[in-house]
Simulated assay, not measured.
Amino acid sequence: MAALSGRLWWRSGAALGRTAAGAVRAQELAERLRTKWSEEEKQQQQQQQQQQRARELAALQRVHPNVLAKALRQRAVYQDDEVVVLNKPYGLPVHGGPGVKNCIADVLPILAKMLVNMKAEPLHLCHRLDKETTGVMVLARSKEAADRIRLLFKTRQVEKIYW
């Protein structure tokens, strides 16, 4: 009986060894599946973000220029006697072109009227950002200030940080 029980124990030990190896393989497979699902979820999230950006871009192209100017005024992060700094939204072009209905350059006269302490002179662009780029844009309240700021950008005295 002892030999039989030893033999059964050996078999159950081997079976236990196979079970442990199977458990490791199952665990590895589960981890690979989790990684694959995680990657698929990331791809889906990226697609959803791209679709959201496309919807935002389409919405910006449909609004009235007064509504766009008001939205830009709300995005002003700094103002003084010479400059206005705003946070440019994604999808809004700085200059017009084929297929562009709304751009920042077109609404500058309207925006100028909405800002505090603004004279009759319209705002001036000092630099540009790509349509797909968000970030701060510097606008000048006078032609002289715009020329000085453009020179700073041209001579690379303005530090630009891209993320």
Rank of each mutant, 00 (worst) to 15 (best):
A69W: 10
A54R: 09
P65I: 11
R55L: 00
R73T: 11
Q50R: 08
L60S: 05
A59Q: 09
E56C: 03
E56L: 04
Q49N: 13
Q45I: 06
Q51E: 11
N66T: 08
Q43K: 15
V67D: 12
Q46M: 03
Q51D: 13
K42W: 14
R53D: 02
Q61C: 09
R55N: 00
A58F: 02
Q52N: 04
P65F: 03
Q50D: 09
A59R: 07
Q52S: 13
Q47W: 06
Q50M: 13
A71Y: 13
L68H: 00
A54T: 02
A58K: 07
A69T: 11
Q51M: 07
V63I: 12
L57E: 03
V67A: 04
A69F: 10
Q44D: 08
L72A: 13
Q52H: 11
R55D: 00
P65V: 15
V63W: 05
A71R: 12
L60K: 03
A69L: 07
Q49Y: 01
A58W: 07
A54I: 01
A71N: 15
Q51N: 07
A54D: 02
Q45Y: 12
R53L: 04
Q49K: 04
Q44T: 09
N66L: 08
V63C: 06
Q49E: 10
K70F: 02
K70D: 14
Q45L: 13
L68V: 02
L72K: 10
L68N: 00
R55K: 10
A69E: 14
L57V: 01
L57P: 04
A54L: 10
H64E: 14
A58N: 03
Q47H: 05
A54Y: 15
L57I: 02
Q49V: 07
A58V: 03
K42T: 11
Q61V: 13
A58R: 11
E56W: 05
